[in-house]
Design a protein around this nucleic acid. Structure first.
Lengths: 204, 204
DNA sequence: GTCTATAAAGAGATAGAC
DNA sequence: GTCTATCTCTTTATAGAC
């Protein structure tokens, strides 16, 4: 029989820890801040997760595990290549817009601890070969022009992720720090990026 | 008359600080590590730069100031639009390959302290309008197809920067952590990205 | 200018009461 | 399970000798 109090608290901790870690990163995050945001004290954090490191790993795995499967969806759907790519780009940019700190958080942490990342990817059962072979298939069938599938994947991710990762810079340089026009611009990019990518894979 | 010892030491500090800050970021960097790398002790760091914050700001300004003018080169050259873009992409990817921690460092720090960034950009005299109006001119002249110049700029930067920023992830997922094949791939991308971008701005 | 020694504050982690 | 109080170690920063 599950203890209601425990579950509530653990959820509150995880939620608060995700907020703080994703914004500040492992190095910048403070256990005190997480405790405050969860409405509890530091001691209780250590009761649920022995150390900051363990709490961080729980958060990183959770966040990483939510973002990655989206990418794999490109491989498994039954739709046409145009539809698959379109749906992915639209959906992915949407997720990132709602979590604008996520891209830079992941970039930060994979630089800080690449070995942890490597181990996690192995555990995760992520299979990039599936996407690669899907694209190869489409090329062999003459549906899209021949190119290195890795370039295609990386182009899609670059165009979708970078403008969110660089939000503070773009916001100042192009939008005079006005959030609304930045958001409108990114919203439009769902279409722009889609067209841009589809245009690039057409058989000439 | 300049004191040789002082200049040498200050240079050693700046060089060491750049190495450490760019890799670890403000939050992850330690004054002790910078001192060690410079071959001096912590007290001397504080003698030259009163605080960690001041040392960090000196480094960030310097690094940011070296990277940004490159982008402005797109606006000022007299060559054709194809040549300008080609030269920029090749040169920019080259710089980033030699400084693979730079993109993530800048992304990290602009999230940590966006106001410092905003102030710096104002001081820097960076003029994005110049690039934008250059692209508008090319569109009006019918040299490239009409689009939002900001999208074009962001696409170029995304395709050039993101694959370096995500190096640890790409390295594991696509290259089994083999640095050589990763580097070879990025080297090839100088051409790939150039073609990709040029293809996208052609009049259809 | 450069060093050693140390102050002062910060931050993760634990002890023990309730 | 949750809290207060505290320990311990780290880290920035300064004092003062040379």
């Amino acid at each position: 029989m599950t203890n209601i109090k425990k579950d509530n608290t653990e959820e509150k901790i995880l939620s608060a820890a995700q907020n703080v870690f994703v914004r500040k990163g492992m190095d910048g995050a403070r256990m005190q801040e997480i405790a405050d945001e969860a409405g509890i004290n530091k001691a209780l954090l250590h009761y649920y997760f022995r150390s900051k490191q363990q709490l961080f790993e729980a958060i990183f795995k959770s966040v990483f595990g939510k973002i990655m499967p989206n990418i794999m969806l490109m491989a498994t759907s039954e739709k046409s290549i145009e539809e698959k790519l379109g749906a992915f780009i639209e959906n992915y940019i949407d997720i990132l817009m709602k979590n604008p700190f996520l891209p830079t958080f992941i970039l930060k942490e994979i630089h800080r601890d690449p070995e942890f990342l490597a181990g996690m990817i192995k555990e995760s059962g992520l299979q990039p070969e599936l996407i690669i072979s899907m694209f190869k298939q489409e090329m062999d069938n003459g549906n899209i022009r021949k190119m290195d599938p890795r370039d295609l994947i990386i182009n899609i991710l670059s165009l979708s992720i970078f403008p969110i990762a660089a939000k503070p810079l773009m916001s100042v340089v192009f939008f005079d720090t006005d959030q609304k026009s930045y958001n409108k611009f990114i919203e439009k990019r769902k279409v722009t990026v889609k067209e841009f990518v589809l245009h690039s894979i057409l058989i000439k």
